[in-house]
Every structure is written in C-alpha cells, then in structure tokens.
Amino acid sequence: DRIFMTRTEALEFLLKAHQTAVDKIGHPSHKQTPADHAAIEALDRLLLDVRARRVDQFQINASAAQIIVTD
C-alpha cells in the first residue's frame, strides 16, 4: 500500500509516531530495551531527513504502508 502526503503531513505523522514511541518507553509498566531507543533514534533521523528534503518516501516498519511525500 502507498499513502501520498504533503511534506507537512508527513512531518506531523512522524512527530506523532515519535511521541508514541517516547510515551511507550516512558510508561512505568514497559521495560526499556535497546531496540526501543534505536527506534526513536531512527525516527529522529527520518524526521530530519524528511524536513531537509533528503527523503521523499519512507516506511516506518515492514508491515506499514509506504509513505510518499509530495510537494
């Protein structure tokens, strides 16, 4: 599946995904793992790359739809 978004929409989408990941590892019942921190770092890099126009398409994980940034 493909989803087309403007750059602004894609950045909002990534910010929400980032916040969800941060909230998940901050929850008291969740045991933090290196994979959790790696996922947040990957989202940080992706946010910067989309914002800087170095990336025009991405996929958060293998089961997610491919996001295509349109400007």
Rank of each mutant, 00 (worst) to 15 (best):
R45P: 00
D44S: 15
P34G: 03
D23H: 10
L11F: 05
A62Q: 11
L11C: 07
A38Q: 11
A17C: 06
E12M: 10
N61G: 14
G26F: 15
I25K: 04
H27I: 06
H27W: 10
L47S: 03
R45N: 11
A64F: 12
G26H: 15
I25N: 05
F58R: 00
A39W: 14
T33G: 08
Q32T: 15
L14M: 01
D23M: 06
Q59F: 11
A65W: 10
Q19P: 01
P28V: 08
V55Y: 02
K16L: 12
N61C: 05
T20G: 08
K16G: 06
D71L: 07
K31Y: 15
R2W: 10
L48R: 06
L46T: 02
L47C: 03
L11K: 01
R54F: 06
D56T: 12
Q57F: 12
A64H: 11
I68G: 01
A17L: 12
R2A: 09
R2P: 08
A65M: 13
R51P: 02
A35G: 09
S29A: 04
I3W: 10
A35Q: 12
P34A: 15
L15Y: 10
L47G: 01
V69Q: 01
V22N: 03
A21S: 03
Q57Y: 12
G26V: 10
I68P: 00
L43S: 01
I60D: 04
L43M: 08
R7V: 14
M5V: 03
L15T: 13
Q19S: 06
M5K: 02
V50R: 00
L15G: 09
G26W: 15
T70Y: 13
H27T: 08
T20R: 11
M5W: 02
G26S: 15
T33K: 03
F4A: 06
R7C: 03
A62V: 07
R53F: 13
H18G: 02
T33A: 03
D56W: 13
R51T: 11
I40E: 02
L14F: 01
V50A: 01
I3V: 11
F13A: 04
R2Y: 11
A35H: 08
H30N: 10
A52W: 11
H30F: 06
L43Y: 02
P28D: 15
K31C: 05
A38H: 08
